[in-house]
Design a protein around this nucleic acid. Structure first.
Lengths: 347, 347
DNA sequence: ATGAAAGCGCTAACAA
DNA sequence: TTGTTAGCGCTTTCAT
């Protein structure tokens, strides 16, 4: 069991001062090649590695980013988390996870904990009360960026897909497909993603001379979505919507299941279904869901960029709101407008 | 923007020594009620919170657990991660994520990084080369536990489901269902989970007087599983297996898709399919997959227990290998043996 | 370019 | 119970 090796030990073995060792392991320091070599050799022999925590104490930079996440059952988040973590790792940072779920105590506890760790920045994803947390982090001088959620008023940086535009695209697609009775199953109203998707959707619908004929709320949860689907579709055929836009894929799967397996309806022959996110199961043949793609790679890149802008420039980085356009991925769950080609998606 | 508040400032405002403040925030310390009150009041007024990093430096305990994970696309892992993180949070610890994926540099880099952070313990999940890493951590004096993976030889603690028993259960179920041509689609051979599942499966099959008639390898990846399914089932009907056990759900979905949507076979009428893990999509009606449940809650609890045993007792905690039995969840993807009841699963 | 010295914010003996 | 005193391992002036 290798004992802890300190810079002092390396210094002694190399016959230099302790600060020399520190310099060798500090990117922009001034050390002679000779010292460099001696130190590196000694360090290698001893298996020395700088202690990140000690460095953090004196430098004030922990190289830790706090990621606060509410839940991972929407499969967009595991994907985002993986990419986020990878991107941060490449920059020499690491992700410290904070679950802000129902089970884990209240949000205030999480807030205090995250500050205790002296994180260099915070990313908030799928977190209820995002705005409160964000504000408190900023007050504490910790850069924050909201991932896949936005905040209207204040100057908080956020990265989302262009949910308004996405909602519009779905409406236009459904309109073009000749649908006359269009329904909408919403997510949690507290989320900007939900609100923007719905706003864009309804705006484009109205421009096409229609409006939604049915509205349900799934709260982004499977069970609620299921219930909403039953209420919306378990009615006489002439009252039944011929298409439904579901605020995210996670709920759309549940809705499709109710439609096909509980109500015996065919998708898309009887009802067209469109989702949002393009999580992996959307491409699975059993669902083959038409949906708006959230470009996780781009969203992550923008998030990391924005975060480091704030970290690198103590105060003069201006808050930004990035909305990334995502394409409509046309699969088989919605009737195709005349002239539209079915998109073969490689999974 | 609140400035950093130190224990010294709190001490001055409360009119006590700095160590008094420290004691107030140290669980098992001896402080009078009077001091306690004064300090807490001053701390509240100043918005003071102990600096975890400083504490870590002197105490040698960072309250950080390193979680090394290879990928999150098998949906068993996001679930596990969420539960793990919650369980650790309850104990005052937090999870620092290290992605050991293809993209992120080699495993050695990850190893060094994880040690740099002075983590109190390491959990390895779905990581290639687990054994190497585990050994190196132990050498560095950092407790390790393998999650959902085991190591035969050495004394490394691991927590898995009882994969051998699980494999047996599947075989017995298939045998009871009257299947005569049973196939197996394997996961990555480097994983103990794969090996144990296959070993148990074949052992029970042999006891029933059969053996697998077809074997494919999916490597735990969707695409490979798809290819394996094509090879195995795109043959003349008399050569075709009438049942297949797929080493995990993630691959089983892909196999079912190939069977139904590419080859036009009915499940379970033409082919019975059984998976392993019981991830959420297995319960979705579109798949309705019969599978062995990995009890994530129990596995997480055991993992955390084992880890803290090692953390709390520097050296005399004995390595353990926990294998948690998981039930067969009978759904509709496999033909029911006479007398077996279909299990209604609440999703 | 290098060493000496002063802490970063805290805990842990040690006295009192 | 309390205050005083050492450091934890490192970065960072400040001299040299």
């Amino acid at each position: 069991m290798a004992e802890k090796v300190t810079s002092l030990q390396v210094a002694q073995r190399a016959g230099v001062s302790q600060s020399a060792v520190s310099r060798v392991f500090t990117p922009g320091a001034s050390v002679s090649q000779k010292t460099q070599d001696k130190v590196r050799k000694a360090a290698a022999e001893l298996g020395y590695r700088p202690n990140v925590l000690a460095r953090a104490m004196v430098s004030g930079k922990s190289r830790i980013i706090g990621l606060v996440v509410g839940y991972l059952d929407n499969y967009f988040y595991p994907e985002a988390l993986e990419k986020l973590s990878n991107a941060l790792q490449e920059r020499g940072y690491h992700v410290l996870i904070f679950m802000a779920s129902r089970s884990a105590g209240n949000i205030d506890t999480v807030m205090e904990e995250i500050l205790d760790y002296q994180v260099d920045g915070v990313i908030l994803a799928s977190v209820p009360m995002s705005s409160d947390i964000a504000t408190r982090c900023q007050q504490a001088g910790v850069p924050v960026v909201l991932f896949n959620r936005s905040q209207d008023a204040d100057g908080i940086t956020s990265v989302t897909s262009d949910n308004y535009a996405g909602g519009r695209k779905v409406a236009e697609f459904l309109l073009a497909g000749g649908h006359r009775r269009i329904g909408y199953i919403a997510g949690w109203q507290g989320a900007s993603t939900q609100r923007d998707r719905e706003t864009g959707f309804r705006a484009a619908l109205r421009e096409g001379g229609q409006d939604i004929v049915a509205h349900g709320t799934g709260e982004f949860h499977t069970e609620d979505a299921r219930a909403a689907a039953r209420t919306m579709f378990d009615v006489s055929p002439d009252l039944r919507p011929d298409a439904v836009f579901v605020a995210n894929d996670h709920m759309a799967f549940a809705v499709m299941d109710v439609l096909r397996f509980e109500l015996g309806l065919r998708v898309p022959e009887d009802v067209s279904v469109v989702g949002y996110d393009d999580v992996p199961p959307a491409a699975w043949p059993a669902y083959n869901l038409t949906t708006i793609r959230q470009r996780a790679n781009l969203m992550v890149a923008e998030t990391v960029d924005a975060l480091f802008d704030h970290i690198d420039s103590p105060s003069n980085a201006t808050p930004r709101k990035v909305a990334i356009d995502g394409p409509l991925i046309v699969r088989g769950s919605a009737r195709l407008p005349a002239g539209w080609a079915l998109q073969r998606t490689v999974t």
